Amino acid sequence: MQMIEHLALLTYWDAVAAAFLICAYFLLGWMIEHPPKSRPSVTKIMSENRREWLRVFVTRDPRIFDSQIMGSLRQGTAFFASTCIFAIGGVFALIANTDPLRGVAAEISTEDIPIVVWQVKLGLVALMLSNGFLKFVWANRIFGYCSVMMAAVPNDPDHPEALPRALQAAELNIRAAINFNRGLRSMYFALGGLAWLIGSAPFLGATAAVIWLIWSREFASLPRDILLGKYP
């Protein structure tokens, strides 16, 4: 009963800001993964490049270069998954130990806000980090599937199964990359969620900044122009 009373201290704008972050994560992800043909995202452009990579892979001999790329991709997902684990552990340690939270509350606000409110706010950060961890782990596993499928491609480029298997590997590679990008977006939004500790207005502002950052990198960045052949 007391916890419900404490949670009632969260304002209408707190609820709006939290809903805004969650909706933005899903809607922005959908826009990136399903962009209009007239304005493809970096993710969509790279998906086509991944298919082209695996088409070239069929005729490449030897294929050591490709195995090195796959190893690098898996190392990247493993690194970010480990980073998420450490971050989640730190957030949960802060949630479990209320003494540091009291110090944070005293520094940030002059109001006597119950610890449970700070724990709820940090819980949203932990939720986004956990989602990122699961995406990275799944991406790592799919990259593993892709590696096995690439190994199953016959060395003879004229073999009837060579190109079909390579294209299957390409689709697995794309799915792994999509999940990797989802994990990165979760980490970005988790950082934005930390602003909720200051208040709902900074939280909304930080979420908007994260949206702009991700959108600009996908739709208005220099790497995107380079990928489209628009050199500076």
Rank of each mutant, 00 (worst) to 15 (best):
R39C: 00
P40Y: 01
P40V: 05
P40A: 02
P40H: 02
P40R: 07
S41D: 08
S41C: 02
S41P: 06
S41L: 03
V42R: 09
V42E: 04
V42N: 00
V42Y: 01
V42T: 14
T43H: 06
T43N: 06
T43A: 15
T43K: 07
T43S: 14
T43I: 10
K44P: 01
K44E: 09
K44D: 10
I45M: 10
M46I: 08
M46T: 12
M46E: 14
M46L: 14
S47R: 06
S47K: 05
S47A: 15
S47P: 01
S47E: 14
E48K: 09
E48F: 07
E48N: 09
E48H: 12
E48W: 07
E48D: 13
E48A: 11
N49K: 12
N49P: 00
R50E: 04
R50G: 01
R50P: 00
R50F: 01
R51D: 04
R51A: 04
R51L: 09
R51K: 12
E52A: 13
W53V: 01
W53F: 15
L54P: 00
L54A: 05
R55F: 00
R55A: 04
V56S: 13
V56F: 04
V56R: 12
V56E: 13
V56K: 12
V56P: 00
F57H: 03
F57Y: 15
F57I: 02
V58A: 03
V58M: 03
V58H: 02
V58L: 05
V58E: 06
T59A: 11
T59D: 09
T59H: 11
T59G: 03
R60E: 09
D61H: 11
D61K: 09
D61Y: 10
P62C: 02
P62A: 04
R63G: 04
R63N: 06
R63L: 04
R63K: 14
I64V: 14
I64T: 14
F65N: 05
F65R: 07
F65Y: 11
F65V: 10
F65H: 11
F65C: 03
F65A: 13
D66V: 06
D66T: 05
D66P: 03
D66C: 05
S67G: 08
S67H: 14
Q68W: 11
Q68Y: 13
Q68A: 15
Q68T: 13
I69G: 05
I69T: 11
M70L: 11
M70R: 05
G71C: 04
G71I: 02
G71V: 07
G71F: 03
